[in-house]
């Protein structure tokens, strides 16, 4: 029961949804959409559960006065305040204030920090140890140069070469990777849907 049930449910819902995806939708009526709606509902519920768990874990830390308790307290208060505001006054100016003046600057600055780290990553990638590093270095410097307005003044070839690089080698590189990934995913999802693989989450 414990082992069979999840697999049976996975296979059955997978089959119905797949038939809904490829069929013209008449055979199964509203069932595929209903299952998908149910799964979306559960996904949202799972998000709430994850947040609740986060609140509980940090709340416990704060109450027990463990080291870092102060930070945990800030986290829990910020979370409850934002959640409460969002639920009581959805779409309000107050919630917008939190989003504009707290959420956005915090996340944007955290992303901005990566500007520093990407340079040190590049420094390490640019050590010319083999042919691949040479290609990487030349391409990335060229793509940075091609971004600049001044490059067009230097030579009209630069924008043209930039467009060509994007259209041919970059397209080929990313497309090859996309195809490889797609084939892998295809095999993996088929194994799930036929019950050959048991995903970890069902253990």
């Amino acid at each position: 029961m414990r082992r069979v049930l999840p697999i049976a449910v996975t296979c059955l819902t997978g089959l119905v949804v797949l038939l809904g995806f490829f069929g013209n939708g008449d055979i199964l009526g509203g069932w595929p959409n209903l299952l998908v709606e149910g799964a979306a509902f559960l996904a949202a519920l799972a998000l709430l559960m994850g947040v609740a768990h986060l609140a509980l874990a940090h709340g416990r830390r704060a109450v027990r006065g463990e080291p870092q308790a102060g930070y945990s307290l800030v986290l829990v208060i910020a979370m409850l305040a934002t959640f409460g505001l969002g639920v009581v006054l959805p779409g309000s100016a107050e919630l917008a204030w939190v989003f504009d003046h707290l959420y956005t600057p915090l996340q944007a600055t955290m992303t901005a920090l990566l500007a520093f780290f990407v340079v040190s990553a590049a420094y390490r990638a640019f050590r010319l140890r083999h042919a691949e590093a040479v290609v990487l270095l030349i391409t990335s410097l060229f793509m940075l140069l091609g971004q600049l307005a001044v490059s067009e003044r230097l030579s009209p070839i630069i924008p043209a070469l930039r467009e060509w690089t994007l259209a041919i080698p970059v397209t080929a590189g990313v497309r090859g990777i996309l195809l490889g990934t797609a084939l892998g995913t295809l095999a993996a999802t088929l194994r799930i849907l036929t019950g050959i693989d048991r995903p970890q989450a069902l253990e």
Partner: peptide, 21 residues
């Protein structure tokens, strides 16, 4: 063969650039 995390179906979906790249 581009199936980097074979134990999970949705895994390699989540990185457009798979680790194999």
């Amino acid at each position: 063969a581009g199936a980097p995390q074979e134990d999970d179906p949705l895994a390699d979906l989540e990185g457009l650039l798979p680790p194999a790249a």
